[in-house]
Nucleic acid binder design. Structure first.
Ligand SMILES: [Mn+2]
Ligand SMILES: [Mn+2]
Ligand SMILES: [Zn+2]
Ligand SMILES: [Zn+2]
Lengths: 130, 130
DNA sequence: CAATACATTAGAATCATTCTAAACTGATAT
DNA sequence: ATATCAGTTTAGAATGATTCTAATGTATTG
């Protein structure tokens, strides 16, 4: 992402100092899975102290513009995923880490959804032992 | 479940008044997905006021004895499942409801897990639209 | 450089869940 | 049966992730 400010403006987001820093980190070309807390820690490492309130606001703003996906995997925190394509995950509970599965996986044997309900998306989560 | 007290004893759980009431409700032969809150509401309907602390304790006790499965689907609450067989789910976010998929589903195209990691289990969650 | 709409922030509030510690009860031994 | 005691229940406090509030700061536009 060369011009983050332009990128934010394209997505109807004012390029504030904090959003530029966060977007630069998140959209550096390497897909990431972050929580508010892990993002806060990364920002502190790079000497950018941004309040937790702003981190939450920004993650949700980016999510609302479709720049992040929200993953509900763990009942104790929300993960945001910079890979917005439909994909699946390996999940290590021990490491509290997600790994993208970009392979084209197929699920067979799926029964019909209940009456009046439509399938929105199918999510495969592969739990790892260690 | 005819003899709940015996069932609880078999699972090294003292058949206290509260556990008997909760076990009678949960293990009546109809599989259920409950949260502490939905269970509390059901118990109130049947005039059994059991403290939330006990409800949480009991759900975790049953979970530890393998009588319930824990489902981490939603970052805002924990679901407990009386169906302890390996199975998948339809999930309606709108209704906050889970529906068992007992069909024998297959996932193909799964890549190898990362080095030194073993696959524990594969969970398929089918999100419903409405 | 205003004016103003939008963004940031510290701190309070919220809410599911867990913890604490005191009162209670089921199991066991006399 | 009764006493004993480990295990259980409970109210209420504590915790921790997230959201809210409302005061202050800033990007944008003219
Ligand atoms: Mn993620
Ligand atoms: Mn719950
Ligand atoms: Zn991902
Ligand atoms: Zn189920």
């Amino acid at each position: 992402m060369k011009d983050i400010k332009h990128f934010l403006r394209q997505n109807s987001l004012r390029p504030t100092k904090q959003r530029v820093i966060i977007a630069n980190y998140l959209f550096d070309g390497v897909n990431k899975h972050v929580t508010a807390e892990t993002l806060s820690n990364e920002l502190l490492k790079m000497k950018a102290g941004i309040s937790l309130a702003t981190i939450y606001n920004t993650l949700h703003d980016f999510y609302e513009k479709g720049l992040l996906k929200k993953l509900m995997i763990n009942s104790e925190r929300i993960y945001f995923d910079t890979n917005t394509e439909h994909h699946h995950h390996f999940y290590s509970k021990k490491d509290q880490k997600l790994i993208d599965i970009n392979a084209d996986m197929k699920v067979s044997g799926l029964p019909k959804p209940p009456k009046n309900k439509k399938i929105n998306k199918i999510e495969v989560l592969v739990h790892l032992d260690n």
